[in-house]
Every structure is written in structure tokens, then in C-alpha cells.
């Protein structure tokens, strides 16, 4: 049985000009221990569809789907309080800007322990021990001292490591990483990606990697979904996607990489693209 199963997800936002459809009929499945990359440019609906899964969209968003299940449980029918028992525990998410995701008023130790208190009901000593272990696992030196640090005392890379520690605190089955390295330097990006892949393999956890960077896709994914303007353009395993992309949008996207440039002009991405039928099965 698939860990996460979504069929025909539609997300609409109410605007003054009428409903805007940000996600239009996305279907996907994630199996246990699998790394799925969702790649697309801004406005492709890649973040919005995962925020819908997490239940983190604002009230202006209208989410509907034929099916949205996590470990066999229907996510759409859950009450908010039942949903909060899953989100952050079995299903966790990290975001692009680590500094914006951490609360500047509390120490990182407090913020890691908060998750353990809410979801696991650990007592004070257990929480502290587990927090130290987590910081060690994400590669922060002197974890006992660092528990007392505030977010502003850390670098961007370290803050992202803390975010990963918080996400992993309850041993999630699924980690959703939304552009986790976009705000970081390349050498730090490499460290964070290596860390995520190591933790993913050690824990056998499933991961959804949202990114716009084809290099990150190539370095992490087992399977890839390409999204464009809320539609799923193509789904393939990573090797097939890079070797023999079927959709012409995917081909244009790969051709526009400066790495693949032939001659002194880059091919630009311009439509029309072969849109798959809305709500197509995978």
C-alpha cells in the first residue's frame, strides 16, 4: 500500500477576479522509503499541492480531491485536531527559509523539545536527551551548548539543520522538503542534501523533494514529477526523465540549463506545451 496517495487534487484560491486554480488535477503516489522530486518553476503549484497535504493553506484556499490518503487514512475528512496528530509527527515539512521558520524569541532547544512534548508526551529529561541526539544526528557540534542558542546565533546552514532536527523529532514516515537548499550556498547545499539523503536511507523514510533545480533532482530523486501551471506534465523515474523526456515542456526545461547549452544562445522555454488531460491517472 502506498504511503501517500492523492488523486485529482484541485486547489483554488478565491480572488477578486474569481477563483484561481493553482493546482489542477494532480495525482501522485509515494511509497515507503522512496524519494519523489516535484520540479517546476514558480507558479507551477508544487508548493501549494504539498501545503494542501499538510493542511497548511489559508482559509481562502478551497481544496478538493477524489482521494487523499496517508497510510490508508483519509486526510480530507479528518477533523483539525485529528489532523494535527499526524502533521508534524508522521508527516513533517521543512521550508526554504530556515531563519523565517524558526521562532526568534525561543532557543532552538525549546523549539525542538516543544515537538516532543506535544506529540510524544516525553518528560523533561527524555526531551532533553532526545534533543541532544537529534542535534548530533544532523551534524551540529557541541549539541548540549547549542540547545541554548537562539536562531540568530546560527548560520543559515545550521538553522536548516535545526529545522531538519525538528522535522525528524518524531521519526516521521514522510518528510516533505520544500526547496530546502535554495537559500543556501552551493557548498552548504551539498552538505544539507547529503545529510537529508543519509537520514532518509538510515530511517527508511519517504521524502518528497520540492525544487526548481534540475541539479538537485538529479542528485536526490528516485522518481520525478514535472509540474507546470498546476498540471502534472510528466512523471518518470529519474534516469528516464533525464535520458528520454517525453513531454516537450520537460525537454525545454532541460535544454534551458546552461550546462546543456550548445552554441552561444540558450534555447528559451516557450509554449504551447502538451498539456495532459486534466485529472489523468498515472
Amino acid at each position: 500500500m502506498a504511503l501517500l496517495e492523492i488523486e485529482n487534487l484541485v486547489v483554488e484560491f478565491g480572488t477578486s477576479a474569481g477563483a484561481f486554480r493553482a493546482v489542477d488535477g494532480i495525482s501522485l503516489k509515494v511509497d515507503e522509503g522512496e524519494v519523489l522530486a516535484i520540479v517546476g518553476e514558480s507558479g507551477s503549484g508544487k508548493s501549494v499541492s504539498m501545503l494542501a497535504v499538510m493542511g497548511l493553506l489559508p482559509w481562502t484556499a478551497k481544496v478538493s480531491a477524489d482521494r487523499m490518503t496517508f497510510r490508508g487514512r483519509d486526510l480530507l475528512g479528518l477533523s483539525p485536531s485529528d489532523r494535527r496528530k499526524i502533521v508534524g509527527k508522521d508527516m513533517a515539512m521543512i521550508f526554504q527559509e530556515p531563519m523565517a521558520s524558526l521562532n526568534p524569541c525561543f532557543t532552538v532547544g525549546f523549539q525542538i523539545e516543544e515537538v516532543l512534548r506535544v506529540h510524544m508526551g516525553f518528560d523533561r529529561r527524555e526531551r532533553r536527551e532526545r534533543a541532544i541526539k537529534l542535534l548530533e544526528a544532523v551534524g551540529i557540534p557541541e549539541p548540549e551548548q547549542r540547545l541554548k542558542s537562539f536562531p540568530h546565533q546560527m548560520s543559515g546552514g545550521q538553522a536548516q539543520r535545526v529545522m531538519i532536527a525538528i522535522a525528524l523529532a518524531c521519526d516521521p514516515k514522510l518528510l516533505i522538503a520544500d526547496e530546502p537548499t535554495t537559500a543556501l550556498d552551493v557548498t552548504i547545499q551539498k552538505q544539507i542534501l547529503d545529510l537529508l539523503m543519509r537520514l532518509q536511507a538510515e530511517r527508511g523514510m519517504a521524502m518528497i523533494m520540492i525544487t526548481h533545480n534540475m541539479g538537485v533532482v538529479a542528485e536526490t530523486a528516485d522518481r520525478v514529477i514535472v509540474q507546470y501551471k498546476g498540471h502534472k506534465m510528466e512523471e518518470a523515474d529519474v534516469l528516464t526523465l533525464f535520458e528520454a523526456p517525453k513531454n516537450n515542456y520537460t525537454r525545454a526545461l532541460l535544454a534551458a540549463l546552461p550546462d546543456n547549452a550548445v552554441g552561444d544562445r540558450l534555447p528559451t522555454i516557450s509554449g504551447p506545451f502538451e498539456m495532459p488531460a486534466s485529472g489523468s491517472a498515472r
Partner: peptide, 22 residues
Amino acid sequence: KTLFAATPRADVESIRKRLARR
């Protein structure tokens, strides 16, 4: 050299190598 090694590579050859390692 570190900088070059850290840059993600999007070519088929390096994907093959990674999948083999995995």
C-alpha cells in the same frame, strides 16, 4: 575544487553513478 564538487550535476552519467551507489 570543493566548489565544483559541490555543484549538483544534472547529467545522465552522474545519475547512473548515484543510483548504483544507492
